[in-house]
Write a protein that binds this DNA or RNA. Structure first.
Length: 287
DNA sequence: GCGGCGA
């Protein structure tokens, strides 16, 4: 669990992908990016000495939260008109965003209404100057949004294997494990198109061992590396002089393995009898 | 060292 209680196995088998905390005035906000078989979600808790309240944001909504916080930050720069209240519907939940003000200052109230649970609310102080509370909150949402994409298995939609930029469509969330197996992997191509900035320029201590596999016309390199943020496995698809990579923190490697195993399992009728790709060990590539 | 929310 978050908040300095590492020993307690504390409820739920959901995997914690990322935890962050933010202090605004005397409140402490906990951000927990978690995952279970239904997908990723972000748990945001507000804790004061006396109370704690929590909202649960589906992973597909993180980017909308980011947008909304950007809206409230910038809307108070040009204080011509009052910032509007907003609603955000995600799955079966509705989130309400309202700005309020009292003698303590301005605040943003975010409340979650769902059919099953009681309404729960967190209140984010704007902070004293330049809405720095909202800005800090926004920045963390941005980091978590990036991390969430990093942890997301690349979507196996069967569109052109060309330059498909992953934009704001984050519908890869719940249900992709059980649901779409019928149309998944109708091609033996693997599309690797996401390059995540983990600043691999800083990487040190390349293990010196790289592996490469060949599938159809493509080559995929597997390189262990590390930088100031930890160890990772870089998987690169190399074609000509182009290389695109995904950077997989080692914390995600086991899940990655299980996920690949899952897709091997559900496609084994198709891949049975295919000759396996050859695997070689090569020298570590020069960056 | 706070306080908003809603009961």
């Amino acid at each position: 669990m978050e908040g300095g209680n590492p020993g307690g196995g504390g409820g739920g088998n959901d995997v914690e992908l990322l935890c962050k905390t933010l202090q605004v005035e005397h409140k402490l906000f906990y951000f927990d990016l978690k995952e279970n078989p239904r997908g990723q979600y972000l748990k945001i808790s507000e804790k004061t000495s006396a109370t704690r309240s929590t909202i649960i944001v589906p992973a597909s909504g993180i980017v909308w939260f980011l947008d909304l916080f950007n809206y409230y930050v910038s809307s108070s720069d040009n204080d011509q008109q009052e910032p509007l209240s907003k609603e955000l519907q995600l799955d079966t939940k509705v989130f309400y965003f309202d700005v309020g003000e009292n003698k303590r200052g301005r605040f943003l109230k975010v409340s979650e209404a769902s059919v099953s649970r009681n309404r729960s609310t967190i209140i984010v102080p704007a902070g004293s100057a330049h809405d720095e509370g909202w800005v800090a909150f926004r920045n963390i949402l941005g980091e978590i949004n990036e991390a969430s994409r990093l942890f997301t298995v690349p979507n196996q939609q069967n569109s052109e294997p060309s330059e498909r930029l992953v934009g704001l469509s984050d519908d890869v969330g719940a249900g992709f494990i059980s649901g779409h197996s019928a149309q998944a992997a109708t091609s033996s191509d693997v599309n690797v198109e996401r390059s995540v900035d983990l600043s691999p320029q800083d990487e040190t201590g390349n293990s010196g061992v790289s592996k490469v596999i060949r599938a159809d016309q493509k080559r995929f390199f597997f390189d262990l590396g590390s930088n100031n943020r930890g160890h990772f496995l870089r998987i690169s698809e190399v074609a000509g002089s182009d290389r695109s990579s995904i950077i997989l923190p080692l914390s995600g490697l086991k899940q990655f393995h299980e996920m690949v195993g899952h897709f091997v399992e559900i496609t084994k009728d198709r891949i049975e009898g295919m000759t396996g790709a050859s695997v070689r060990t090569v020298d570590a590539p020069q960056r």
